[in-house]
């Protein structure tokens, strides 16, 4: 009899403990990206086609910047802090080797015909008005998987 009683008591105790524990473990509030203002401009890029990309394909990029203003009118003028445009590079290219230069939030890029089959990065690099890259560099990228069909 005693064992039965003890077992039932333990089961009940476990039940109470579990249910109490349930409420206390509310998930912490998700942290916001707090560093936007202090850590410099950030770029987020997304593309409409990233898989089975063919050479010559036209890809539409959607570019979101924060902590920076894209102004096409100010290109080729004196530098201003927090204002400028971007250049789209393929993989490790730099300098004048860009695919497109602009300041629109949505832009079309043509994939070069001589691109190799494999993984490639499309990098959107922020530039100052005078067409020099930002220091420290600020860029976002999207991965393309290319293979000729």
């Amino acid at each position: 009899m005693r064992t039965i009683f003890l077992a039932l008591l333990t089961a009940f105790a476990l039940a109470v403990v579990t249910s109490c524990g349930k409420d206390d473990d509310a998930p912490p509030a998700p942290e916001e990206n707090a560093d936007t203002t202090t850590a410099g401009p950030t770029v987020k890029v997304s593309a409409d086609k990233t898989h089975a990309v063919q050479p010559g394909d036209e890809i539409t990029l959607t570019i979101e910047v924060s902590g920076f203003t894209l102004d096409p009118a100010k290109m080729e003028q004196t530098n201003e802090d927090g204002v400028g445009h971007y250049r789209v590079y393929l993989d490790d290219a730099s300098g004048a080797d860009y695919l497109i230069e602009g300041a629109d939030n949505s832009t079309k890029v043509t994939v070069p015909g001589d691109i190799t089959d494999g993984s490639h990065d499309l990098r959107v690099v922020l530039h100052n008005n005078d067409r020099t890259p930002l220091e420290p560099a600020a860029e976002g990228s999207v991965l393309l998987i290319v293979y000729r069909l």
């Binding site: 476990l14 039940a15 579990t18 249910s19 524990g21 349930k22 473990d25 998930p27």
Partner: peptide, 11 residues
């Protein structure tokens, strides 16, 4: 008490 039946994922 749901937690008794299926152990809560959070734990």
């Amino acid at each position: 008490i749901e937690g008794l039946h299926t152990f809560p994922e959070r734990l």
